[in-house]
Simulated assay, not measured.
Amino acid sequence: MTTPRAMTRRRAETRRRVIEAAYDVFAEMGIRDAPVELICDRAGFTRGAFYSNFASKEELFLAVYEVRMQERVERLRTAVAAATAAADPASADAITGVLQDAGELFMESLTADETWYLLNAEFRAQALRQPELRAPTAAAERRFHHALAEILRDLLSRLGLRLTVEPESAVITIVRLYETMLERAILDELPDRAGNRYLTDVLPRLLTALVTPL
Rank of each mutant, 00 (worst) to 15 (best):
R5K: 12
A6H: 07
M7R: 13
T8Y: 07
R11K: 15
A12N: 08
T14E: 10
R15L: 03
I19K: 05
I19G: 07
E20C: 00
A21W: 00
A22K: 01
A22H: 04
Y23F: 13
D24P: 09
V25I: 11
V25F: 02
V25K: 06
V25R: 05
F26A: 09
A27S: 06
A27Q: 01
M29F: 14
I31C: 06
I31W: 02
I31R: 04
R32D: 14
R32V: 14
E37H: 13
L38E: 13
I39T: 12
C40K: 03
D41Q: 15
Y51S: 07
Y51C: 02
N53R: 04
F54E: 06
L60Y: 07
F61K: 01
A63L: 06
A63I: 12
Y65L: 01
R68G: 14
R68I: 01
Q70H: 12
E71W: 03
R72N: 13
E74M: 11
R75Q: 14
R75W: 08
R77E: 11
R77M: 03
A79E: 15
V80M: 13
A81Q: 11
A82R: 15
A83F: 01
T84R: 09
A86V: 11
D88S: 12
D88W: 03
P89T: 13
S91F: 13
D93L: 12
A94C: 02
G97A: 05
V98H: 05
V98F: 00
L99S: 08
D101C: 03
G103S: 06
L105V: 08
F106V: 15
M107W: 09
E108P: 01
S109P: 09
A112C: 09
A112K: 08
D113C: 01
T115D: 05
T115K: 09
Y117K: 03
L119Q: 04
L119M: 00
A121P: 00
A121S: 02
R124M: 02
Q126E: 14
L128R: 15
L128K: 15
L128F: 11
Q130K: 14
Q130H: 11
Q130V: 08
E132R: 12
L133A: 03
L133I: 06
L133Q: 07
R134S: 11
P136W: 10
P136Q: 10
T137A: 13
A138Y: 07
R143Y: 02
R143T: 04
F144E: 02
F144N: 01
H146E: 09
A147H: 07
L148V: 06
E150F: 10
R153I: 04
D154Q: 14
R158Y: 01
R162E: 14
V165T: 02
E166Q: 10
I172Y: 10
T173C: 04
V175F: 05
L177T: 07
T180F: 03
T180D: 12
M181W: 01
L182K: 11
E183C: 01
E183W: 01
R184K: 00
R184F: 11
A185K: 00
P191Y: 02
P191D: 02
D192E: 14
N196I: 00
N196L: 09
R197V: 10
L199K: 11
R205M: 09
L206V: 13
L207A: 04
T208L: 10
T208M: 06
A209N: 03
L210Q: 12
L210W: 09
L210C: 05
L214A: 13
